[in-house]
Write a protein that binds this DNA or RNA. Structure first.
Lengths: 337, 337
DNA sequence: CTGTTAGCGCTTTCAT
DNA sequence: ATGAAAGCGCTAACAG
């Protein structure tokens, strides 16, 4: 392995001079700078970031933990974070917790031993509090993404789940629907609670009664939608529309409905939170509350780096990004029979 | 920051003893082991992987570079790699080159300075040769994924693009199609060349003439499919079926066709390479050659770690994973008019 | 403008 | 069973 000492020897200078050339620090004569640079090239020198970090006490590595790498919302968010980090000279260490608290813990340990300079964290749920506290104990700057965790204060970038849910449900109501089901994620995740709140709010604003038989809470398990649909449809007064709390739930629901021979949107309307990437949807027909996923990542990195560099104990900032209602064809006016 | 010296002092032992406890190495009395462990807990000690790597000359970090983080093929592959790496005690540093040679170079530099123990590399194309050579120069074990690069020998995990393409095209032929267009990726990527070869092979096996007006080479730019469709359809003897070399191209093509009021599959059949994840496709109707993406990642890691640990200069291994033909409804029998 | 010294946190080697 | 010394590759602080 080529070190600065190898370079130094060959260039007849001290290691320190080589170090200065590498970092463009201090004053160095143009002549030696060029000589050293040339030798570094010749010898294929690559700085050792381990050694550097050890003395500098900073790694220039940020970590991004997401909960589902197969979800377009998170991959788009990841691209936003990556671009923003790179642009500012930071590397990004990805992690995928898979909505799994145990995996999340492993990633937290990894962040700690890797001595990352900061963390962008999409928690699996309220139980992530413990993990966040560990990071806080070690003074690692931290930005929460997409989901908040009760009892934990920090910078965050969130969507407006309540408003988005309300808009979606009001859209259904404006189409004449009165029996609207909510296919929700687990309530230990803040976004699920907020979407439920928005759902209730929309009902109330329109003088519709809240019926808890229309609300189903699903964890992110495959095929759970199928059972949920069954029970929903067997009710005496079944829903005419479904509000799915995220894109995957909507897809699961629609597939389940179609498998039963029920047409969407002709027989049942469906709307959901989160869009799919442009390149993924064959037939963009879902009416959605689309979130600016790329911005989530980019702004998260910005907050994080500001926190790292200012070292300031300034007040925590909470950025709330509004969703955009995109009306397509998966929800239609209720047929008056 | 808590170091082994802090622990040592508090436990009235030497740093060396603490180190031994951490690594379960050497013999230590049960009494001191327990005492030291307890103090480590109390003080929230976390080993510093930088310092450790610096002396050990290994990081236990592997790097995975993919070309498109929004493509389900690669995210699924990433999950396979991640699971396999974690299971064997390695961490995975993700990178997303975005089919961009410049970004790829930045990631290579990063791998070098981060001193990763090995690299899983999906190259952007043949021009990646230079980057691979750099890694080779620095003796970094390397496994190529999905795409090979002429002139570069190493372990690889590939799909059988030629066979998959042949099957897809023969399927179309069996449905009565004779004018079959190929919507291909750029030819500086090995998979595109192999898919072209498979396409030609299928034609030849069925005594159909190869017509280069039916073959379009697209780079991965948005909306390129639209223009390609235009020119394809304006021909005197336009295609009745399209073989798209990957999932995104197929989607682009279908959207373009539908925008022109052309129905798939009624008027034009479409098949493609690579499936979508289960959770992403609303309406799994595309007939595809599906690749075992998860296996690509898992096997890649396996090859890589074996190479790292054996240090052996054994022969390079090339694993070729066959695709699976999944017949759905996007391709139908040609209407005899 | 350049060099010397010391030390970042850890483990290897050699003592005891 | 435990410890002391040296060194991994690098840079901050000070000296010249």
């Amino acid at each position: 392995m080529v070190t600065i000492y190898d370079i130094a020897k060959k260039a007849n200078v001290s290691a320190m001079t080589v170090s200065r050339v590498i970092n463009n620090s201090g004053r160095i004569s143009e002549k030696t700078r060029i000589k050293v640079k040339k030798i570094m090239e010749e010898m294929n020198y690559v700085p050792n970031s381990m050694a550097r970090s050890l003395v500098l006490q900073e790694t220039k590595i940020l970590s991004l933990l997401i909960t589902d790498i197969t979800n377009p919302f998170f991959t788009t968010l990841a691209r936003g974070a990556e671009d923003a980090a790179m642009r500012r000279g930071y590397k990004l260490l990805f992690g995928n917790s898979d909505e799994n608290l145990q995996k999340e813990k492993e990633y937290v340990d990894m962040m700690l031993t890797a001595r990352v300079d900061g963390v962008l964290f999409a928690p699996t749920g309220d139980a992530s509090l413990e993990h966040l506290s560990i990071l806080r104990t070690h003074n690692i700057p931290l930005v929460l993404l997409d989901r908040e965790v009760p009892g934990f204060e920090t910078d965050m970038v969130l969507g407006d789940s309540r408003a988005g849910a309300r808009q979606l449900v009001e859209h259904l109501i404006s189409l004449g629907h009165k029996r609207i089901a909510l296919l929700n994620g687990p309530l230990h995740v803040s976004t699920a609670r907020h979407r439920l709140a928005g759902y209730k709010e929309a009902l109330k604003l329109n003088d519709l009664a809240y019926d808890d038989r229309l609300v189903v809470e699903l964890d992110y398990k495959p095929a759970a939608e199928n059972l949920a649909m069954d029970s929903l449809l067997q009710q005496t007064d079944p829903p005419t529309a479904i509000f799915a709390a995220n894109n995957f739930l909507a897809i699961g629901a629609i597939r389940s409905l179609r498998a039963k021979g029920i047409s969407v949107p002709k027989q049942i309307s469906v709307v959901c939170f989160d869009d799919f990437g442009e390149s993924l949807s064959l037939d963009p027909f879902l009416t959605v509350a689309s979130q600016p996923a790329y911005q989530f990542g980019a702004l998260g990195i910005q907050l994080l780096i500001e926190r790292i560099q200012d070292k300031s104990e300034g007040d925590y900032r909470k950025i709330v990004l509004p969703p955009e209602l995109i009306i397509r064809s998966s929800a239609q006016a209720l047929n008056i029979m």
